[in-house]
Amino acid sequence: MLGGLKRALARRRLKDPAYAWLFEPDRTGELVSIDCETTGLDPKTAEILSIGAVRIQGRRILASERLDLRVRPRGAVDAVGTRIHRLRRLDVADGLDPADAVRRVLDFVGTRPLVGYYLEFDAALLDRYARPLLGIGLPNERIEVSALYYDWRAKQVPHGGNIDLRFETIRRRLDLPPIVAHDAYADALMAAMMYLRLT
């Protein structure tokens, strides 16, 4: 009810009418798992360096039709972020213009719900990037895999027990095969596998 209201409000604020279809009900039945690599950990200031996304169709991950973008950051590449994902300024210099990257993401995602690990962070960034273009953030439904995992795990551990929500811990608990790479696409792919294991 409240969601419907917020949606209607957002729809009115939409700047570019060409994207009105974002508010259509989803008819694909698919989902999109998405992950970003960034220059920092604050969603208000961090810049996106790369975006990886993959569609989930039924029980299948369409890895062959992946989205894997490098994005040109506007500020300096923060040392903390660099240590995490090993992308240097050099690597992203020939990345896409942020506005182009957002358009590519919107086309790829369409009306599909988003899936991710700590999606809140990635989604906040994507919203911030989308706003100049749309006037609003991404209206898509969002599914948090760490929350799905929490519910699943809570049934196994005694009440009040600690549940470790680290990415690697979840992967091991769900008995998923490791992916050697640690980039946006690999993390989006892993989140998609976690989603399918948990549903």
Binding site: R59, R60, I61, L62, S64, A192, M193, L196, R197
Partner: peptide, 10 residues
């Protein structure tokens, strides 16, 4: 690597 999808089967 680029051409393969991933399937989950119960």
């Amino acid at each position: 690597r680029r051409g393969a999808d991933i399937g989950f089967f119960r």
